[in-house]
């Protein structure tokens, strides 16, 4: 009668113990434009690709400063992200008020993840259709976290989410070990280069100062910096001298394609399907839909 009767209600498990509605929410993240995060021993950098709803419109916001020491990049539904960012701003302010100290990043992310979980367990709600990369510093140094609509969160050394993020992840997996001791400039360049991977195969999109936004936060005590437009240009210019991995050589290309061909072992399958069959199992679409197919509300 129905193709799948278990996939319309957030409170219904499939016979395999999966929650399809949660998995679909995870798909919304993949529809959003890409966000990349990288971390060294002293800094975290986020690089994001901004979409424009039309030639006449401004860009959809990708980066939200939460506090002096925390910034997030979003992929998925911007409106949902605004709800989460407002929550995060309230929580960091509350912590500062209560303890006169900045909020530890891990505790903030934990609260966000718990908030996300709530809306996966009630029939009256839907999961948040957005994934976050949270960059921040605290007493233990710099941190990069990813949160998912499923209520899962992970701490990463380097990570990418959003449309065609697999290409960026493949690039990062090859390079992330060299980033621990990188200086800020190198870190930003690495993030931008990884971001470029997500548009490398696209004919109509190219990384530019206009559609790239960067956030930097470091354990030097300086508040979050967000770079846009002219400030991004130097990193875009520097890109042309570093050949894209896709053009680089054939071996790399094979490597980049490999995970997409066998989604079950793709390193990101977990991010999408953290086991227990929760988010997107093996039958999730391996290929991400084309960027221009996304609705305006997704960034």
């Amino acid at each position: 009668m129905f193709r799948n009767q278990y996939d319309t209600d957030i409170t219904t498990y499939s016979p395999q113990g999966r929650l399809h509605q949660v998995e679909y929410a995870m798909e919304a993240v993949k529809q959003g434009s890409a966000s990349v995060g990288v971390r060294s021993k002293t800094h975290v950098v986020l690089a994001t690709l901004k979409r424009f709803a039309s030639e006449l419109s401004g860009d959809q916001k990708k980066l939200f400063a939460i506090d002096d020491h925390v910034v997030i990049a979003i992929s998925g539904l911007t409106a949902d992200a605004r709800v989460l960012s407002r929550y995060m701003r309230t929580e960091t302010q509350h912590h500062k008020f209560m303890y006169e100290e900045p909020m530890p990043v891990g505790r903030l992310v934990l609260q966000v993840a718990d908030k996300c979980q709530i809306s996966t367990q009630r029939a009256s709600k839907r999961p948040f259709g957005v994934g976050l990369l949270v960059a921040g510093v605290d007493e233990n140094g710099p941190h990069l976290y990813q949160t998912c609509p499923s209520g899962n969160y992970f701490e990463y050394l380097a990570m990418a989410i959003g449309a065609r993020s697999q290409s960026a992840k493949t690039y990062l997996e090859r390079t992330y070990t060299t980033l621990a001791d990188a200086d800020v400039e190198a870190l930003v360049q690495a993030a931008v280069t990884a971001l470029r991977e997500t548009v490398a195969s696209s004919k109509d999109t190219e990384l530019s100062a206009k559609n790239t936004a960067i956030a930097i936060v470091g354990s030097d005590g300086a508040p979050v910096r967000i770079l846009e437009n002219a400030a991004v240009q130097p990193y875009i210019d520097a890109l042309d001298s570093t050949p894209s991995a896709a053009d680089d050589d054939d071996d790399d290309e094979d490597e980049a394609d490999a995970p997409a061909a066998t989604p079950a072992v793709a390193p990101d399958a977990p991010a999408a399907a953290p086991e227990g069959g929760s988010p997107a199992g093996g039958d999730a679409p391996a290929e991400e839909p084309p960027a221009n197919g996304a609705a305006d509300m997704q960034t």
């Binding site: 008020f97 209560m98 303890y99 530890p104 891990g106 605290d138 007493e139």
Partner: peptide
């Protein structure tokens, strides 16, 4: 129980009590 290697500094405890 948070068990994340962080604890409240004396300054934070004072702020907490003051609030």
């Amino acid at each position: 129980v948070a068990n994340d290697g962080l604890s409240l500094s004396p300054k934070a405890i004072h702020a907490f009590l003051a609030r």
